[in-house]
Simulated assay, not measured.
Amino acid sequence: MSTPHSPTPGGPEITASIVICTHRRPELLGACLDSLIGQRMGPWAGGGSPGLVHEILVIDNSALAEGRPVVESRQAAFALRGVPLRHVLEARPGVSFARNRGVAEAAGALIAFIDDDERAGDGWLERLLEPFQRLGDAVDIVAGEVEPDFGALPRPDWLADDMMHFFSCRWGWDSEARFLRETEWFGEGNCAFRKRLMAGRSFPTDLGRKGDGLLTNEGIIFMEMRSEGAATYYVPSATVSHLIHPDRLTRRWLMRRMFYQGVSNRLTQRRYGVAEQRWDFNVNLAKLADVDVETLEGENLRAMIRLYYQLGYASALAMN
């Protein structure tokens, strides 16, 4: 495992930094922080030496800094547990700017990401970071599982299991911990990695969410790492719950989501010189506009999802 270090000379050593990127969602941020209060590194952390072993950084991606009072109201509770909690303002809009700032501010040799609309399950941090100790240099990245949280609403009948990936949930690669295969992916909202992997790298700021936009794929940086040999370990028991906002529980939102996934994928392929896909399809936009997507079910819904993805992919040609 990487050697922990102190953010200040003579201060306690910090092994891992938990980074939360947030944007104008103070209530969700509060719930996320509350889920972290009881988290521990595990008995192996710090080699048994006293002192701090992890910190929490909240990277506030809003010039209004709505997250500051949320952080300040909880700093004392974390301090009682020996965990420093810091608020860092990153006013440049975009989750990639926030992630890059989190990496730059992190004192730990290990960095763990959790999103502001997620809550950590019991034992999350210990389970997520344990492979770094047990497997040593054989592991570079660890990914956990994400469970959907529908809040007070029931899960919609039309939302099938194979559509959960579109909501960044349920990777479902295995019931046991193991190394991921090259074709198996994970989400940025529940992962940990060695900070040294970021040397010379940064999350691409032309990709990823900005405000209410739906561009994605800033996590392509992890694909870069893996293509260069970074071994990724999957721990299904390191779970977080992801709140699915009620506004997203519509087929219409899903169509918009898939359109921008198509845009994001083509921009990513162009950026990295990957061969682009070609499809032959004709779309009558007037007829498409008349389709009530909220009535679609089963294979008809899946066909519409594919169509909106293809439309976004084709539209990316006109985007810079």
Rank of each mutant, 00 (worst) to 15 (best):
R127P: 00
R86W: 11
D162S: 14
M255P: 01
R196Q: 09
I111W: 07
H54E: 03
C169V: 14
S17D: 00
E72A: 10
L215E: 04
R68A: 09
R81H: 07
A77E: 10
E188I: 15
I114T: 04
L159R: 07
I59W: 06
P93N: 06
D122R: 08
N300I: 08
S175A: 06
Y233S: 01
R74P: 07
I111A: 00
L267E: 15
G298R: 15
V291P: 03
E218F: 09
L153I: 00
S35G: 04
G102H: 10
R68T: 11
A65R: 13
A77G: 04
D280L: 09
S227F: 13
A138Y: 01
H165D: 14
G46Q: 09
M163N: 13
W171C: 10
L125F: 09
P50H: 03
L296G: 09
E105P: 11
R278P: 08
A192L: 02
G38K: 04
R74F: 06
H165V: 15
V88A: 11
M225K: 04
S237Q: 15
M225C: 05
R306I: 11
L159N: 12
Q133E: 11
E145N: 13
A177I: 01
H242F: 06
L249C: 05
E27D: 08
G82F: 15
A31H: 13
S49E: 12
S175W: 06
S62D: 15
A77M: 08
L180A: 07
G102R: 09
V19K: 01
E147T: 14
G219N: 09
A91D: 15
A143K: 03
G11T: 08
Y308E: 09
R266L: 12
A318T: 12
R266A: 10
R127M: 08
Y313K: 14
L207Q: 10
I20T: 02
K210G: 00
G187E: 04
I37L: 14
L296V: 10
P236W: 00
P12A: 05
G219S: 12
D292F: 06
L159M: 08
S202K: 12
A138E: 01
H5M: 06
A77I: 11
L254Y: 07
I221L: 08
Y309V: 05
P84E: 07
D149A: 14
S175P: 05
C32K: 06
L33H: 02
R119V: 11
E184F: 12
H245W: 05
Q133F: 04
G108C: 05
R92V: 11
A91R: 14
F132C: 01
S227L: 14
V235I: 02
L159H: 13
E126M: 06
P50T: 04
G30K: 02
V71E: 01
F193Y: 06
R68D: 09
V274M: 11
D206L: 07
I221E: 03
A106W: 00
I59P: 00
G229L: 02
I111S: 00
L29V: 10
L89M: 15
L153Y: 01
R25L: 10
P131I: 03
L311I: 13
P204C: 10
M258T: 07
L215K: 08
Y260K: 05
D292R: 13
